[in-house]
Design a protein around this nucleic acid. Structure first.
Length: 882
DNA sequence: ACAATCACG
DNA sequence: ACGTACGTGATTGTT
C-alpha cells in the first residue's frame, strides 16, 4: 500500500518559528523557522517512509473565507518580519530539493490538503497530514492520520490522530469537529464562534445534540439560559462560523502524483541552499559534498622511512609564498596513542605518515620541529600541537582555528569540518562520525583506512583553508591581530598550561572539611525551621517551602516557578532567620563543591593544576579558562578568598600578581577622547571620587561615600552599555533617578556620550564593532525587530569595543612579559591570566626584575592617552599576592 | 540538554 | 508595553 505525506506549509513553518530559538546566518537572514521546518519534515519522512510528498501553502490573495470574515473582524495579525522573510526561503529550499509545492489562489492550504487527502484515500493510499493546528482534525479518517508536532523543551513530539483518536480526545467525530469549532470559534483561524460558548460548552452541546443543526432543532432543551440566548441571538454567526470552519474537501486542485514522488532530495542545489543558510547539522545528510571524490586518490599513506624522508625534504624546499599543512592524529585524542602525522604539501599531495617501525613519534616530532621557522606551517588548534612542534617561533605558523574564530567569534564550534564547509564549501567526514560509536563496530582494517582518510582530509582542509582565511583576515583588517597577537599568544597559553599552578592538597582538604562542619549544622537547622526535610539545593523544593509552606512574599519570577536567587532572598533575610541560613548554606556549598572538591580532582604531578586556556571562545576576545576554571576563584568575600591560600609557588619562589587599574575605564577615556575623563586620569586620584565630584557638583574633598558608590556604579554601567533600568537595579533606586545620574554623567563627559552613540550608529551601519586592534564582533541583534534583542545589540555595541580592547591589551602584555622573562633567561614563569591580572611564579632572587618587567611591559602594551597603571603585590600564596 | 544559581573580571 | 546591565564556567537538579 502506498502512502502520501502532506504538509501544511505555513502552519508548520509557524510552529517551527516559535519552537526554535532565533538563528541567523552570516547575511543576517533569520533561519530558525526554515531549520525547524526541515527538521520536522525529515523526522516525518523517516518515520513514514512515504512514496509521495507535497507541501501546501496559502497564497497571499485573500481567500473566500477570509473575505467573509473581514467584515467581522478585520484581517489576521501580521506575521513578524523575522518569520515573513523565511517564507520565500523555505519555498526556495523545497524547490531546490525537488519537493512538490502546492498553492492556488482562492484556496487555502487547508482546502488543498483536505481535497488531496480525500482523493488519495479514495485511491487507496494511507495519508499522513502534517499540520500545526487542529483545524485539520475534521479530515481524519481510518486512513487519514493527522499529525500535529509539538515542541516540548527543544524536542519535537508528534500527536497522531486517526478518526478514533479525535473521538477519544474531543468526544466528537471528525465531522462533528466542524460544528464544534463553529460553536467555540477559533481566534487564530479567524472563526468568530458563538459568544459565551467555549470548548467545554461546545463539547457538551455536541455530545448531547450531535450537530449544529441538531442543537437548533432542540434549542429549547438547552439548559443553560445564557448559552441558549446567545445561540438564538447569534444563529447567523453560528452558520457563518460553520462555513468558515468547514474545510473544502472537493476543491479544484490539479495534482499529479508523479510530481510528488519521493526521490533523492540531496541535490547540488539543495546543498548550496543549506550551506548558505548554515544548516550544518542538516548538511550531514548529504552523503557526499561537491568535493571531487577523485581527491581521495591524492591521499597517500606512508609507512617507510625513505618515503617519509622524502616528504620532509620536499617540505623543506617549499619556495616563497608556499606553505605546508600538518596535523597530528591521536586515536582517542591523547598524546599517548599517537597514530601518525598527516601532511599536505599542495592540494594534490596529502600524506599520512603512520607511526610504526622507524617512523616513531620522536622521529616525526624532530622532523616537524626542524621545519618550524623555515617553512610556513599551517595547522588546526596550534596550541595543542606545540608538543610535536617544539618551537616558540610563531611567525611562520598559521592556525585555521584561530583564524576562523577571529572572522566570526560568535560561533560555538569551529570544527575542521565546519571550517571546510563555511570557508571552502566542502563536505568532509566529521570526526564525530569516525570516532563515534560506529568506529567500534568496524573491523580494525576499515578503521585504519578511515583514519587515514580523515587525517588526509584534515591536512587538506588546513592547507586549502589557510590561503582563504589569510585573505579574509587581510580584507577585514585582522591580519596583524592574527600574526602579532593571537599566534604568539597561542604559545604563551600553551606554556602557561604546561606550567600549571601549585596547590597544597592537604590545605585544600582541610578547608573543605571545615566548610562541611558548618554545612551540616546549617542543614539540620534549616530543616528544623522549615518543619520538614527537603533538598535545599533544589530551587523547586526551596521555592515551595519558602513561598507556599512558609508563605513568604515574593511570588513568581522565573519560567519554571519561584525565583530563589540571592537578590530575592536578600530582601527576605532580615525578616526570616531561615532565609539567612539558606544564604549561608548556599555560599558554603558553593565553595565546597566548586572549589574545595572541584579543584581537588585536577591536582596532578607535583601538586600542580593545569587549567586549559581557551583562545577561541568569547565574543569579545577575552580568553577563558576551563577544567578547572581558574578565572573565577573567590575574591570578593573573605571566606571564599581564603581558598587562595592553597595556591602556592614552588620552593624558592614567590607569587607576583599585577593587575591593571581600571583598564576598561582607561580604554574608554582613550577611545572616546573625552577631555574631561582623560584629565581626570591625569590627576592620578581616585577616579570614582573625581567622577562623583564632577557629576554631583561637589568639591572633591566633600564627596560622600554614597556619592562615590553611585559614581562607581555609573562608571561600570557605562562600560556595560548603560541603561537606566540596569543602573536602577544595581543601585536599588528608581529608574528616573538612574536616568538622571546617566544624564549628569553624560553632561560631565560629553565625549563619552558622543563616542557611545557613534559605536551604536556604526554598528548598525556595518553590522559589527571593532576594538582598537581591529578585532571584530558582529552584532546581528541590532537588526532584530524585537525591542529587547535590539536593545541588547546596542549594549553589546557599546561594551564589546571596550572589553575587547582591554582584552587585546592584556594579550599584548602577556606576550611581552613572557618574552622578557625568556630573553632575560629568568626561571620565573607567567602562569595565570585573569582578564586584567597576571600572575607570575617568581624565583625569589628574580623578584625585583620580575616586578620591573611586569610594570614596564604591562604599561607599554598599548599607547593610550592615559597611563596604564598597575597594582602589584608579592606573597607566599595567591591570597597574599592579590 | 537545559535552567537556575553563583563564582570571577 | 516590552523587561535588561557586559563577558565567562562549574555545579546541581530537573526533564
Amino acid at each position: 500500500m502506498s502512502k502520501i505525506v502532506l504538509i501544511d506549509g505555513h502552519s508548520i513553518l509557524n510552529r517551527a518559528f516559535y519552537g526554535v530559538p532565533d538563528l541567523s546566518n552570516a547575511e543576517g537572514l533569520h533561519t530558525n523557522a526554515v531549520y525547524g521546518f526541515l527538521n520536522i519534515m525529515f523526522k516525518i519522512l523517516e518515520e513514514e517512509n512515504p512514496q509521495y510528498l507535497a507541501v501546501a501553502f496559502d497564497v497571499k490573495e485573500p481567500t473566500f473565507r477570509h473575505e467573509i470574515y473581514k467584515e467581522y473582524k478585520g484581517t489576521r495579525k501580521p506575521m513578524p518580519a523575522e518569520l515573513h522573510e523565511q517564507v520565500p526561503v523555505l519555498k526556495d529550499v523545497l524547490k531546490a530539493m525537488g519537493i512538490k509545492i502546492m498553492e492556488k489562489p482562492g484556496l487555502e492550504a487547508d482546502d488543498i490538503l483536505g481535497t488531496l487527502a480525500r482523493r488519495s484515500e479514495k485511491e487507496g493510499m494511507e495519508v499522513a497530514l502534517i499540520s500545526g493546528d487542529r483545524d485539520l482534525l475534521q479530515i481524519a479518517s481510518e486512513h487519514i492520520k493527522i499529525r500535529i508536532p509539538k515542541t516540548k523543551g527543544g524536542k519535537t513530539e508528534i500527536e497522531d490522530y486517526y478518526a478514533a483518536d479525535v473521538k477519544a480526545r474531543y468526544q466528537v467525530s471528525p465531522l462533528q469537529f466542524i460544528d464544534l469549532k463553529a460553536l467555540m470559534g477559533d481566534a487564530s483561524d479567524n472563526i468568530p464562534g458563538v459568544p459565551k460558548v467555549g470548548e467545554k460548552t461546545a463539547t457538551e452541546l455536541m455530545v448531547q445534540f450531535g450537530s449544529l443543526e441538531g442543537i437548533y432543532e432542540h434549542i429549547e432543551e438547552v439548559t443553560k439560559k445564557a448559552v441558549k440566548e446567545s445561540l438564538i441571538n447569534n444563529k447567523e454567526l453560528a452558520d457563518l462560523s460553520r462555513i468558515l470552519a468547514a474545510i473544502n474537501v472537493d476543491g479544484d486542485v490539479e495534482f499529479s502524483y508523479e510530481d510528488a514522488e519521493v526521490h533523492d532530495f540531496y541535490t547540488e542545489e539543495a546543498y548550496k541552499q543549506f550551506k548558505r543558510l548554515e544548516f550544518k547539522n542538516l548538511l550531514s545528510r548529504f552523503e557526499k559534498g561537491p568535493l571531487d571524490n577523485k581527491q581521495a586518490d591524492y591521499f597517500k599513506e606512508i609507512t617507510d622511512l625513505a618515503q617519509a624522508e622524502e616528504v620532509f625534504e620536499r617540505a623543506l624546499k617549499l619556495g616563497e609564498g608556499r606553505h605546508a599543512a600538518f596535523d597530528v592524529v591521536e586515536d582517542s585524542g591523547k598524546e599517548e596513542d599517537f597514530v601518525g602525522l598527516c601532511f599536505a604539501l599542495d592540494e594534490k599531495e596529502v600524506f599520512f605518515i603512520k607511526a610504526e617501525g622507524f617512523l616513531t613519534k620522536k622521529y616525526m616530532t624532530d622532523k616537524l620541529s626542524g621545519l618550524a621557522g623555515k617553512v610556513k606551517l599551517v595547522t588546526y588548534d596550534v596550541k595543542n600541537k606545540y608538543a610535536y612542534l617544539r618551537t616558540d617561533r610563531t611567525e611562520g605558523l598559521f592556525d585555521i582555528l584561530i583564524a576562523a574564530y577571529l572572522l566570526n567569534p560568535l560561533k560555538n564550534d569551529y570544527d575542521p569540518e565546519d571550517i571546510a564547509n563555511e570557508h571552502l564549501g566542502l563536505m568532509i567526514p566529521s570526526r564525530a562520525q569516525l570516532f563515534g560509536k560506529e568506529r567500534l563496530k568496524k573491523a580494525a582494517q576499515d578503521r585504519a583506512k578511515e583514519l587515514t582518510e580523515y587525517a588526509c582530509f584534515l591536512a587538506y582542509v588546513e592547507y586549502m583553508a589557510a590561503s582563504v582565511l589569510e585573505k579574509k583576515l587581510a580584507e577585514t583588517g585582522m591580519d596583524k591581530l592574527m600574526h602579532e597577537i593571537e599566534m604568539p599568544l597561542s604559545y604563551v597559553l600553551h606554556d602557561m598550561e604546561k606550567e600549571g599552578i601549585r596547590v597544597m592538597p592537604e590545605e585544600l582538604k582541610r578547608y573543605g572539611d571545615a566548610l562541611n562542619g558548618r554545612i551540616e549544622e546549617l542543614e539540620t537547622d534549616i530543616h528544623k525551621q522549615a518543619g520538614s526535610d527537603f533538598n535545599i539545593n533544589s530551587p523547586k523544593q526551596l521555592g515551595e517551602i519558602l513561598f507556599e509552606k512558609l508563605g513568604m512574599p515574593g511570588g513568581k519570577k522565573t519560567k519554571t516557578g519561584y525565583s530563589t536567587a540571592a537578590d530575592v532572598l536578600d530582601k527576605l533575610a532580615p525578616d526570616y532567620p531561615i532565609v539567612a541560613d539558606i544564604l549561608e548554606y548556599r555560599g558554603l556549598t558553593k565553595l565546597k563543591s566548586t572549589y574545595a572538591d572541584g579543584l581537588a580532582v585536577y591536582i596532578g604531578e607535583g601538586n600542580r593544576i593545569h587549567s586549559t586556556f581557551n583562545q577561541t571562545i568569547t565574543a569579545t576576545g577575552r580568553i577563558s579558562s576551563t577544567e578547572p576554571n581558574l578565572q573565577n576563584i573567590p575574591m570578593r568575600m573573605e571566606l571564599g578568598r581564603l581558598i587562595r591560600k592553597v595556591f602556592v609557588p614552588k620552593e624558592g619562589f614567590v607569587f607576583t600578581d599585577a593587575d591593571y587599574s581600571q583598564i576598561e575605564l582607561r580604554v574608554l577615556a582613550h577611545m572616546s577622547g573625552d577631555d574631561q575623563l582623560i584629565e581626570a586620569y591625569r590627576m592620578d586620584e581616585d577616579i570614582h571620587r573625581i567622577t562623583a565630584s564632577k557629576v554631583f557638583h561637589t568639591p572633591f574633598e566633600e564627596v560622600t561615600d554614597l556619592q562615590r558608590r553611585n559614581a562607581k556604579a555609573v562608571n561600570f554601567g557605562i562600560v556595560y552599555g548603560i541603561s537606566s533600568f540596569g543602573l536602577s537595579q544595581d543601585l536599588s533606586i528608581s529608574r528616573k533617578e538612574a536616568a538622571e545620574y546617566i544624564e549628569q554623567y553624560f553632561a560631565t563627559y560629553p565625549g563619552v556620550k558622543k563616542f557611545l552613540d557613534k559605536l551604536v550608529e556604526d554598528a548598525k551601519k556595518n553590522g559589527y564593532v571593532t576594538t582598537m586592534f581591529g578585532r571584530r564582533r558582529p552584532v546581528p541583534e541590532l537588526s532584530s525587530s524585537n525591542f529587547m534583542q535590539r536593545s541588547f545589540g546596542e549594549r553589546v555595541a557599546m561594551n564589546s569595543p571596550i572589553q575587547g580592547t582591554a582584552a587585546d591589551i592584556i594579550k599584548v602584555a602577556m606576550i611581552r612579559v613572557w618574552k622578557r622573562l625568556k630573553e632575560e633567561n629568568l626561571r620565573s614563569k607567567l602562569i595565570l591570566q585573569v582578564h586584567d591580572e597576571l600572575l607570575v611564579e617568581t624565583a625569589s632572587d628574580e623578584l625585583s626584575k620580575v616586578e620591573h618587567i611586569l610594570k614596564e611591559e604591562m604599561r607599554a602594551a598599548a599607547d593610550l592617552a592615559v597611563v596604564l597603571e598597575t597594582d602589584m603585590h608579592t606573597g607566599e600564596n595567591w591570597y597574599e599576592a592579590k
